[in-house]
Computed example of a mutant assay.
Amino acid sequence: MQAITSPVTSTPSRATLWGNLISVYILWGSTYLFIHFMTEQMPPLYMVSIRYLIAGSILYGYARLTGTPAPTRVEWRSASIIGVLLLTISNGCLSVGLQYIPSGMAALLGGLLPVYLLTLNWVSFGKKRPSNLAIAGLIVGLIGIYLLVKPDKLQGTGGIDAKLIGVGLVAFGNFSWAIGTLLTPRLTLPSGTIFSGMQMIIGGIATMLVSLVLEPVTPMSIFEAPAKAIWSMIYLIIFGSIIGFSSYSWLARNAQPQLLSTYAFVNPVVAMLLGTTFAGEVFSSQSFIGAIVALVGVVLITLGKK
Rank of each mutant, 00 (worst) to 15 (best):
L189A: 10
L117S: 08
L169E: 13
F175N: 03
I160N: 09
M105P: 01
G197A: 04
G144V: 05
T188P: 01
S176C: 15
V170G: 14
K150P: 00
G168M: 06
L109R: 06
P185F: 07
G126H: 04
S191W: 06
T184N: 11
L189G: 09
L142K: 00
G110R: 05
S131W: 02
R186F: 04
V123M: 09
L133A: 09
P190C: 02
L154K: 11
A107C: 05
W177E: 12
L169K: 09
G197T: 09
L118W: 01
L112V: 14
G192W: 05
L154Q: 14
G180F: 14
I145W: 06
L118T: 10
F172Q: 03
K150R: 13
I179P: 06
G159Q: 01
M200H: 02
M198N: 12
A107Y: 10
T188V: 07
V167F: 07
L142N: 00
P130G: 14
R129G: 03
Q155T: 14
G144C: 05
A106S: 12
N121V: 00
I139P: 03
M198R: 12
V167A: 08
N174E: 14
L154T: 10
K163W: 07
L142G: 01
G141C: 06
Y116V: 08
W122S: 05
L109G: 11
L113I: 15
G144R: 04
G137M: 12
S176Q: 05
L112R: 02
G144I: 04
N174V: 04
N132D: 14
N121R: 00
D152F: 00
K163M: 11
G159S: 01
L142H: 00
F195L: 15
